[in-house]
Simulated scan of single mutants.
Amino acid sequence: MRSACPTRQRLAIPAAFQDIDRSDCFIVQEERHMGQDVTQAAASWNAHGPDLFLRRGTIKILEAGLRAVLPAGTQALAEDALKLARRYQRLSGTAELRFRLEKIRHDSCRRFHVDQVPLRFLCTYTGPGVQWKYADSETIHETPAGWITLLKGRLYPGWSTKRAVLHRSPPLSDLLVPVTRLLLTLDHPDACGMERQ
């Protein structure tokens, strides 16, 4: 979102995400295969970590908060999530961000929607990934675990309903076997009424 910080260098933007600035681009995805260390760390977090880790702040503040609650065997997950947070920070141009790492065991958001944020960055570590579709289409796409999804929200400069992308959490109640999703969501620091901490 270049207009958020006019002094930001263009070279700092990860090449895979540069298309998000185009007026006709509402979603960018990056294929990513997590290593065994991150996969095992995510499973350990699901077994021993908090159900929700939610913080607002700089990367340094987020790192300190995350390390304070880090269960044994989850270091690789923390390092990966913080690396993604740094990417989002460079992309959005914000000094602070909202960092949400959450275990989801239910149908958290079944309806397709657009968020009230400029940009939303998602990565599902365990379980099915985010589902999305174009507003003018009934075709539903499901994102594999580990992939990165960047979505324009309604607050993105110049956002319009034309070819907008809607998304939702995959309905877990439809699955035959219970699943725990571990979802990382990165946003602008004021997302969802987040209070300054």
Rank of each mutant, 00 (worst) to 15 (best):
residue 136 D to M: 05
residue 95 A to I: 13
residue 126 T to F: 10
residue 144 P to Q: 12
residue 171 P to W: 03
residue 119 L to P: 04
residue 95 A to F: 12
residue 98 R to Y: 09
residue 114 V to Y: 00
residue 107 D to Q: 00
residue 114 V to N: 05
residue 132 W to C: 05
residue 152 K to A: 03
residue 167 H to D: 06
residue 130 V to Q: 12
residue 122 L to Q: 04
residue 160 S to E: 08
residue 142 E to P: 10
residue 148 I to G: 10
residue 163 R to Y: 09
residue 148 I to F: 06
residue 173 S to M: 04
residue 120 R to E: 05
residue 147 W to V: 07
residue 118 P to R: 15
residue 144 P to I: 09
residue 158 G to Y: 00
residue 168 R to C: 10
residue 151 L to P: 08
residue 167 H to K: 02
residue 137 S to Q: 12
residue 129 G to P: 00
residue 115 D to Q: 01
residue 132 W to V: 01
residue 96 E to A: 12
residue 116 Q to K: 11
residue 172 L to G: 05
residue 98 R to S: 09
residue 100 R to W: 08
residue 113 H to A: 10
residue 137 S to I: 14
residue 164 A to V: 01
residue 133 K to E: 08
residue 125 Y to L: 01
residue 131 Q to V: 00
residue 120 R to F: 02
residue 149 T to E: 09
residue 117 V to Q: 02
residue 99 F to N: 04
residue 111 R to E: 13
residue 170 P to A: 08
residue 123 C to Q: 15
residue 171 P to Y: 04
residue 136 D to A: 11
residue 127 G to Q: 03
residue 154 R to T: 15
residue 169 S to Q: 05
residue 154 R to S: 13
residue 97 L to M: 11
residue 113 H to S: 05
residue 118 P to L: 11
residue 123 C to S: 14
residue 129 G to Y: 05
residue 146 G to C: 05
residue 167 H to W: 04
residue 109 C to N: 02
residue 131 Q to P: 06
residue 157 P to K: 00
residue 160 S to K: 10
residue 96 E to Y: 13
residue 139 T to M: 14
residue 114 V to R: 05
residue 136 D to H: 13
residue 138 E to L: 13
residue 166 L to P: 07
residue 140 I to L: 11
residue 120 R to I: 00
residue 112 F to I: 09
residue 146 G to S: 07
residue 146 G to P: 09
residue 95 A to M: 14
residue 107 D to P: 01
residue 143 T to C: 02
residue 128 P to R: 05
residue 146 G to Y: 06
residue 159 W to G: 10
residue 171 P to L: 06
residue 107 D to I: 01
residue 126 T to H: 12
residue 171 P to T: 00
residue 104 I to N: 01
residue 116 Q to W: 07
residue 163 R to S: 15
residue 148 I to M: 14
residue 152 K to I: 00
residue 167 H to C: 02
residue 162 K to M: 13
residue 158 G to V: 05
residue 103 K to V: 03
residue 121 F to S: 07
residue 117 V to S: 10
residue 150 L to M: 01
residue 112 F to M: 03
residue 138 E to M: 11
residue 136 D to S: 12
residue 147 W to T: 06
residue 143 T to V: 10
residue 153 G to I: 04
residue 171 P to Q: 06
residue 96 E to F: 14
residue 123 C to V: 13
residue 160 S to W: 10
residue 111 R to A: 09
residue 134 Y to C: 15
residue 106 H to R: 09
residue 172 L to Q: 07
residue 156 Y to H: 09
residue 115 D to F: 05
residue 108 S to H: 13
residue 140 I to W: 08
residue 110 R to A: 14
residue 128 P to C: 05
residue 110 R to C: 03
residue 162 K to T: 15
